[in-house]
Design a protein around this nucleic acid. Structure first.
Length: 475
RNA sequence: GGCGACAUAGCCAAGUGGCAAGGCAGAGGACUGCAAAUCCUCCAUCCCCGGUUCGAAUCCGGGUGUCGCCUCCA
C-alpha cells in the first residue's frame, strides 16, 4: 500500500484512487517565458519518478502537466523581446522539451496549453457567477473568497490571518482583499479572448482547474507542485474548482521542497539563477537525476559543486557495479546456484522487498538508493570470487538494477557487448604483451584506449573494459 | 503578527520508542607487474535543558539556531 504525505491532511495517507487501479496525476508545469532552472528541474524529475513508480506498482497512470502560456510574465517578456506571446511560448515550449528530455523526464500523457482551454475556463467562471461565488467589476471577474467556507484549508490559514500578513495593495473594487482574479480585462496590446464580460484573458489559477478537469475529471487523485504553490495558487484552485463543482478537487496534494544554491534561495537578483540549458553542458544530466533522488523530496536540498561531485562519485559506484556484472556475465556459463549463490539470491529478494516498502512509504528515494548500494556491495563481493559465477544468477541481479533504473532513470544500461573489432584487437595485443611482461607496451596500449574513452581493468578473470563516464555523456 | 519546515560524523543524507542505513571524503589493511575496480576494518555521547518510559535521535514541555510561506515564484 502506497502512502503519500498529503498537504491537505498533514499526514501520510494511504493512496486510494477514485477508480481502482487508475491514478490521475496533475502537476503544475512551466510558465514558458524562459529556460527552466535547476529548481524546476527538481520537481520535474521528482514527479517523473513518482509517475514511473506508480506505473511500476501497477497503476494505470494518466499524467497531465500543463504549460502556462499566458500571464503577466509572458506578456512582459514578449514585450521585452519584441515578439508575440504566442511566439515566445512556442520557442520556450520547444526548449522545455529539449531540456526535459536531456534530464530524462518523459513527456506527460497530456501537456495542455492554457490558451487552448479558454472556453472551458469561461464555463467554470460562469458557473461561479451563477452561484454568486464570483462577481464582475468593469470587465474583471473576481472569485469571492468569503463565499467558500473552506478557503485556507490547504495552507491551513484562515482569511483573517492571511489578510493580516498580506503585503498586497488593497484593490477597493474587491469585496474582500483576498479575492483573486478569474478573468482580467483586456489591456491594449495584450492577447485577449472574447468572453461574456468583454475581451480579456484568464487569471493564473483558473487555467489549472480547467485543464485538470478536462483530462482527469472533477476529482483528480494527486495534484503535485512545488511548495511555493501551496499559497495562493493551489489554495485558489481548490476554491474555484470545488466552488464550481461542489466536489473535492484533488484527493492528495503533494508538494516538493525547495532547491537552494549554495544555501541561498535561487533568484535573479542574487545572480545565482542556474538554468538546465546552461548546466547540462557541464554536469552529466544523469548525475543531476541521482542528486535529486538522494534526499527526501519534501526536504530542502542544496545545490553546489561539492554536492554534485559527491553525487557523481556515488552514481559511478552503481554504474561500475552494473558494468562489472555485465562483463562477468558474458564470460561465464549457466548453472545450478550453489549455497553462496542461493544466499545472494535471497538477499536479492530482500532488496526487492525493501525497495518497494521504502518507496511505498511516501517515495523515500534516499532509502531506496541505500538498498541498491547494499546490493551493489553484495554483488561486488560475489564477483570477487575467483571462479564459479553463473550467468543466470548474475542476470537476476542485473534485471533488478534495470527494473529500478526504469523508475529512477539515472543509469546507462545499454549492453556494450559489441566492441569495435579494432579495439578488441588492441586489447588482445595488450594481453600478448602482458604475457611476455612487456609492461611498457601493455601500458601504452592501455593509455591509448583511455584516450578513446575505454578503460581497461585487469582482473583474475582476465581484462575487463568499460566506457568512461564522460564518453557516455557525449554518446 | 499568523502558518510551517528543518537541526543526525569532515561533507551529503535515511531513520519517528528497542544496541545510529547508505553515499562522498579520510586512515589502515587485503588483492595487484603497475593502474583500476573491489573487499575488510576504523571514524556520531543524533543542537541544548528538563520530563514521560524498563528503554528516546525518535514522544511531551521549554530554549537556541537556520530556512520557508503569508506578493510572482517549482
Amino acid at each position: 500500500m502506497i502512502k503519500l504525505y498529503n498537504t491537505l491532511t498533514r499526514k501520510k495517507d494511504p493512496l486510494i484512487p477514485v477508480q481502482e487501479g487508475k491514478v490521475g496525476l496533475y502537476a503544475c508545469g512551466p510558465t514558458v517565458y524562459d529556460y527552466f532552472h535547476i529548481g524546476n528541474a527538481r520537481v520535474f524529475i521528482l514527479f517523473d519518478v513518482f509517475r514511473r513508480y506508480l506505473q511500476y506498482r501497477g497503476y494505470d497512470v494518466t499524467y497531465v502537466q500543463n504549460y502556462t502560456d499566458i500571464d503577466d510574465k509572458m506578456i512582459n517578456r514578449a514585450a521585452e523581446l519584441g515578439i508575440t506571446v504566442a511566439e515566445l511560448a512556442e520557442g520556450f515550449i520547444q526548449a522545455y522539451e529539449e531540456d526535459a528530455a536531456a534530464i530524462g523526464v518523459k513527456p506527460a500523457d497530456h501537456q495542455p496549453k492554457a490558451t487552448a482551454y479558454i472556453p472551458q475556463i469561461i464555463r467554470i467562471i460562469e458557473q461561479l457567477l451563477e452561484k454568486d461565488m464570483a462577481y464582475e467589476v468593469d470587465g474583471d471577474v473576481y472569485f469571492q473568497v468569503e463565499s467558500f467556507p473552506d478557503y485556507g484549508k490547504l495552507s491551513h490559514q484562515n482569511l483573517e490571518e492571511l489578510e493580516l500578513g498580506s503585503r498586497v495593495e488593497i484593490d477597493a473594487r474587491k469585496k474582500h482583499p483576498m479575492d483573486f482574479a478569474l478573468w482580467k480585462k483586456e489591456k491594449p496590446g495584450e492577447p485577449s479572448w472574447e468572453s461574456p464580460w468583454g475581451r480579456g484573458r484568464p487569471g493564473w489559477h483558473i487555467e489549472c482547474s480547467a485543464m485538470s478537469m478536462e483530462y482527469l475529471g472533477e476529482t483528480i487523485d494527486i495534484h503535485a507542485g512545488g511548495q511555493d504553490l501551496i499559497f495562493p495558487h493551489h489554495e485558489n484552485e481548490i476554491a474555484q474548482s470545488e466552488g464550481a463543482t461542489g466536489k473535492p478537487f484533488a484527493r492528495y496534494w503533494v508538494h516538493a521542497g525547495y532547491l537552494n544554491i549554495n544555501q541561498e534561495k535561487m533568484s535573479k537578483s542574487l545572480g545565482n539563477f542556474r538554468t538546465v540549458r546552461e548546466l547540462r553542458q557541464k554536469v552529466d544530466p544523469m548525475v543531476l537525476r541521482f542528486f535529486m533522488l538522494s534526499a527526501h523530496y519534501r526536504n530542502p536540498i542544496n545545490f553546489s559543486e561539492e554536492q554534485i561531485q559527491q553525487a557523481s562519485k556515488a552514481l559511478e559506484r552503481l554504474n561500475t557495479a552494473f558494468f562489472n556484472l555485465q562483463d562477468r556475465m558474458r564470460k561465464v556459463g549457466e548453472g545450478e546456484p550453489d549455497e553462496i549463490e542461493q544466499t545472494l539470491l535471497r538477499k536479492l529478494e530482500e532488496a526487492k522487498q525493501r525497495f518497494i516498502e521504502t518507496m511505498d512509504d511516501d517515495f523515500n528515494t534516499a532509502e531506496a538508493l541505500a538498498v541498491l548500494f547494499d546490493l551493489a556491495r553484495e554483488t561486488n563481493t560475489y564477483l570477487n570470487r575467483t571462479e564459479g559465477q553463473k550467468a543466470n544468477v548474475i542476470r537476476s541481479i542485473l534485471d533488478f538494477f534495470r527494473e529500478t533504473n526504469e523508475i529512477f532513470g539515472y543509469m546507462e544500461t545499454a549492453d556494450y557487448s559489441d566492441l569495435e573489432s579494432e579495439i578488441q584487437k588492441m586489447i588482445d595485443q595488450r594481453e600478448e604483451a602482458r604475457k611476455v611482461k612487456n609492461w611498457a607496451l601493455a601500458d601504452g596500449i592501455r593509455d591509448q584506449l583511455r584516450e578513446r574513452g575505454i578503460i581497461l581493468e585487469d582482473t583474475p578473470q582476465g581484462v575487463r573494459w568499460k566506457i568512461a563516464a564522460e564518453e557516455k555523456k557525449e554518446a
